[in-house]
Design a protein around this nucleic acid. Sequence first.
DNA 1: ACTGATACCTGGAGGACCGAGGTATCGGAA
DNA 2: TTCCGATACCTCGGTCCTCCAGGTATCAGT
Lengths: 113, 113
Amino acid sequence: MKFDKGLMAGSSSMLVLSLLKKEDMYGYQMIEQLAKRSGDVFEMGEGTLYPILHAMEKSGYVSSYRQAINGRERKYYHLTERGRKQLDAKKEEWKQFSKGVEGVLSGGAYAFA
Amino acid sequence: MKFDKGLMAGSSSMLVLSLLKKEDMYGYQMIEQLAKRSGDVFEMGEGTLYPILHAMEKSGYVSSYRQAINGRERKYYHLTERGRKQLDAKKEEWKQFSKGVEGVLSGGAYAFA
DNA sequence: ACTGATACCTGGAGGACCGAGGTATCGGAA
DNA sequence: TTCCGATACCTCGGTCCTCCAGGTATCAGT
């Protein structure tokens, strides 16, 4: 399944942070996991992911460390406390946003509690 | 409420099409309606809306006609058959996408039927 | 020795939004 | 009367994000 790339915008970083909540991961692995956990709906390109990771590290949402496995070096990313808070904020934002979309799609009949 | 503008991307045109489903509207009115129907969640700027409308007209999703009310001229937009189909497609895309996001956020536990 | 998978990275093109600015009319207030 | 805010349309430029294509290197299997 392929999406209007626009939909991805604004959600990618949240999705990446979400992946790191349970365990440290390296880039290549994240792409696989994103596809798997979304039911093969998300196919994030490397050219999208790596810049995001670098930006998030600069912002202090994740930290990284290198680890060699069988001579193949992987760069693992770890969710920081600051990143966890950012994830919570993004999730809340997403909830509000998708609620708003439902509201408009349903013709405004949606009741906001 | 203000959002990471990225979230809006990819959904704006769907939201606009959705507004026109029930009745013809003019630009200024759409901005008001979007805010109202979303529970004051969406505040679309004019600089965002007008280019979208022009592009959608060029694509044949909407048609327009001018009508003067009290000397103030309004440009009304009407959803075409082609636009209605596009709306249905976009809605389906949105459903799949938000499902995917939920799947990732919940750690992959989401069951895809 | 070669190829494909793993694993990282960057650069440039293209697309989408937003803020700021511009034009014009109307109604109400000073 | 004059001015200002609301209504109503539009465009331009900056910024941000995604994607494609390309580059590097190691490892496993043929």
